[in-house]
């Protein structure tokens, strides 16, 4: 009974929630709006490549991307469950959402591992 998996999933959800709250607005603004529009200097290919080549950065990126995905999986699972009243599909929703997050975590590990 005490081995409910909810605490573990909730820890991933809140870890991802906190990490995305603190980091993603700056990342989204800089990498996908300011740099493409040339609003800022820097953010050149060399800078970003050197940054991602550092093993520690890739390790952090791996943890972050995985947490973001599990944050999404957990929130979406509850949104579908309560928001659309799909109680009979509980198992299926959990398998699909956490399954996608787990699969993409493996993909992220591969992409970050083979980098450079």
């Amino acid at each position: 009974m005490r081995r409910s998996r909810e605490p573990f999933l909730w820890a991933l959800f809140s870890g991802g929630g906190m990490a995305s709250a603190l980091l993603l607005p700056a990342i989204a603004f800089l990498l996908w709006i300011a740099v493409p529009l040339g609003w800022v200097e820097g953010g050149s290919y060399e800078t970003l490549f050197a940054l991602v080549r550092h093993p520690l950065v890739r390790l952090v990126l791996f943890a972050l991307i995985s947490l973001f995905l599990f944050h999404w999986a957990h929130r979406l699972r509850y949104t579908l469950y309560d928001g659309l009243q799909l109680y009979h599909l509980n198992q299926l929703i959990a398998v699909v959402t956490y399954g996608i997050a787990s699969f993409m975590t493996v993909v992220a590990a591969y992409i970050l591992w083979v980098f450079a």
Partner: peptide
Amino acid sequence: SLFVAYAGLLLL
């Protein structure tokens, strides 16, 4: 959360 996942994938 949809956009958090989107940002994660775009980062990847």
